[in-house]
Simulated scan of single mutants.
Amino acid sequence: MARAGLTADRLARAGAELADEIGFEQVTVAGLARRFNVKPASLYSHVVNSADLKARVALVALAELADRASEAVAGRSREAALAALGNSYRDYAREHPGRFAAMQLRLDSDTAPGSAGPRHTRHRAHPKTGNDESMSSDNWTTTTPIPADFFRRP
């Protein structure tokens, strides 16, 4: 019988909190089970193993930062959008170091396309229109792509 209140989403979010507290590399199913005062076996109906848990934490972090970055660049253009984008990444890294580290995890080819990762690619490539709207040709030509490593260090 599944423990009341435990879901894959709740575990992923709790794993993200744990990553911020103890570091992403230290996140395990056993550690998360201790947080909920349950046995690790109770979590395996929601997460496959620690690698799956870490991938779910990465997905949470990618989505959170993509939302924050979209809000930051909304209504801004060029230099203002670039500065807002950089600030949103820097601030997120400072506020959530474990989650930021989780975003560096390489997701498998089945998981990556459905993640918020492509939104980050759009933000970095074209900060003026890094949201989910389609980009017109003038938007593609009036912005400067940003190297991915630009945002790796907090």
Results as ranks from 00 to 15, higher is better:
M1T: 07
M1F: 10
A2F: 06
A2Y: 05
A4N: 09
L6S: 01
L6H: 00
T7Q: 08
A8T: 00
A8F: 10
A8S: 06
R10T: 00
R10Y: 05
L11N: 02
A12Q: 03
E17D: 07
E17C: 10
E17R: 14
L18D: 00
A19P: 01
D20F: 06
I22F: 10
G23R: 13
Q26A: 14
A30F: 07
G31H: 02
G31M: 01
R34A: 05
V38S: 04
K39C: 04
K39H: 09
K39W: 08
A41S: 14
L43P: 02
Y44A: 00
S45Q: 04
S45I: 14
S45C: 11
S45K: 13
V47T: 01
V47M: 04
N49G: 03
N49W: 03
N49Q: 00
N49P: 08
S50V: 02
D52C: 02
A55P: 04
R56F: 02
A58P: 00
L59H: 01
A61Y: 02
A61K: 06
A61T: 05
A61Q: 05
A63N: 06
A63F: 04
E64K: 00
D67S: 09
D67Q: 07
E71V: 08
A72I: 01
A72K: 01
V73Y: 00
G75Y: 03
G75H: 01
G75A: 08
S77F: 09
R78Y: 15
E79K: 07
A81Y: 02
A81R: 03
L82K: 15
A83D: 14
A83L: 13
L85V: 11
G86C: 04
G86R: 10
S88Q: 09
R90K: 13
D91S: 15
D91A: 13
Y92H: 11
A93V: 12
R94E: 15
E95Y: 03
E95L: 12
E95H: 10
E95T: 12
H96F: 11
P97T: 07
G98C: 09
R99Y: 01
F100I: 05
M103W: 11
Q104A: 15
Q104V: 05
D108I: 01
S109I: 13
S109R: 13
S109G: 14
S109M: 09
D110S: 10
D110G: 10
T111W: 09
G114H: 12
G114M: 01
G117L: 13
R119P: 00
H120F: 00
R122M: 08
H123V: 14
H123L: 13
A125N: 06
A125T: 04
H126P: 02
H126C: 12
P127Q: 05
G130Y: 03
D132W: 12
D132K: 12
D132M: 08
E133S: 10
M135P: 03
S137L: 13
S137Y: 06
S137G: 13
N139F: 11
T141P: 07
T141D: 09
T144N: 08
T144L: 11
P145W: 00
P145T: 06
P147V: 03
D149Q: 00
F150P: 05
R152H: 15
R152W: 08
R153T: 15
